[in-house]
């Protein structure tokens, strides 16, 4: 478990550092990224409905956001 956590933090660190170097865009180059459909949570209603279906039919939930609970689904 501890090793996993360390792994994550290393990965976070690397991502962060690379942010300084060459990754990323200038503030005025966000035309494509600013599109609705490029948002990570785009089509939020669909994602919510899917989460509800898979939450009630499979043993794993969450990941994208909170795993939560909230239904005694069959």
């Amino acid at each position: 478990m501890k090793r996993k956590l360390v792994g994550i933090l290393v990965l976070m660190g690397v991502t962060q550092l690379s942010g300084c170097a060459s990754l990323g865009v200038q503030p005025w180059e966000r035309d494509l990224l600013a599109k609705d459909e490029m948002a990570l949570g785009a089509e939020g209603v669909d994602l919510g409905l899917d989460d509800h279906i898979y939450f009630s039919k499979e043993a794993t939930s969450g990941g994208r956001s909170f795993a939560g609970g909230g239904c005694g689904c069959n």
Binding site: L5, T15, G63
Partner: peptide, 17 residues
Amino acid sequence: GVTQVINRRMLMQFNYG
């Protein structure tokens, strides 16, 4: 979580839960 813009066309997210 970490979200990173890679370039003008691409972005990435990594979450630990």
